[in-house]
Simulated scan of single mutants.
Amino acid sequence: MGTVDNKWGDECSVIGDKGEIDYIDYQNDKSVCGYDPSEEGPIIISAPFPFVEGKPRSVFVGETAIDSITITNTTSEAVDLWTKIYASTPEDSFKLSLMKPPSTDDVKCQAGFIDFSVMEDRMLQPGEALTIWLSCKPMELGLYTTVVHFDAGNDRIERVAFLLADDNISQLPRYDIPQDIRALIERKQIPDVIAGGLTINNYASYFKTLLIMEEIQLEEDMGRHDMECVTMRRRGGYLSLVVPGLAERRPSLLQGDDIFVKLADADDTTTPYQGYIYRVEADEVYLKFNNEFHLCHNDGHPLQCALQI
Results as ranks from 00 to 15, higher is better:
86 Y>P: 00
218 L>P: 00
173 P>M: 05
81 L>E: 03
5 D>R: 11
77 E>G: 11
284 E>A: 00
157 I>F: 04
302 P>M: 05
298 N>A: 10
244 P>M: 02
190 I>D: 04
44 I>L: 01
10 D>V: 13
134 L>N: 02
236 G>L: 03
177 I>D: 11
11 E>S: 09
119 M>W: 12
183 A>P: 05
103 S>L: 15
156 R>G: 04
131 T>L: 02
182 R>W: 15
51 F>Y: 08
179 Q>H: 09
70 T>L: 01
44 I>T: 03
282 A>S: 11
143 L>M: 13
263 L>E: 11
115 D>R: 08
183 A>R: 11
198 L>Y: 07
109 C>P: 03
289 F>R: 03
252 S>H: 15
170 S>C: 01
231 T>I: 14
275 G>T: 02
21 I>S: 07
200 I>L: 13
185 I>R: 14
231 T>N: 15
203 Y>F: 12
41 G>C: 05
215 E>Q: 15
32 V>W: 10
2 G>V: 02
105 D>F: 14
258 D>M: 11
19 G>P: 08
309 I>A: 05
306 A>F: 00
159 R>Y: 13
24 I>W: 08
96 L>Q: 10
202 N>A: 06
94 F>L: 02
246 L>C: 10
262 K>H: 08
280 V>C: 04
34 G>W: 06
110 Q>T: 05
281 E>T: 12
189 Q>N: 08
227 M>E: 12
303 L>Q: 06
141 L>S: 04
50 P>V: 06
278 Y>D: 05
91 E>A: 03
108 K>F: 09
42 P>S: 11
272 P>F: 01
168 N>R: 05
256 G>K: 07
285 V>S: 00
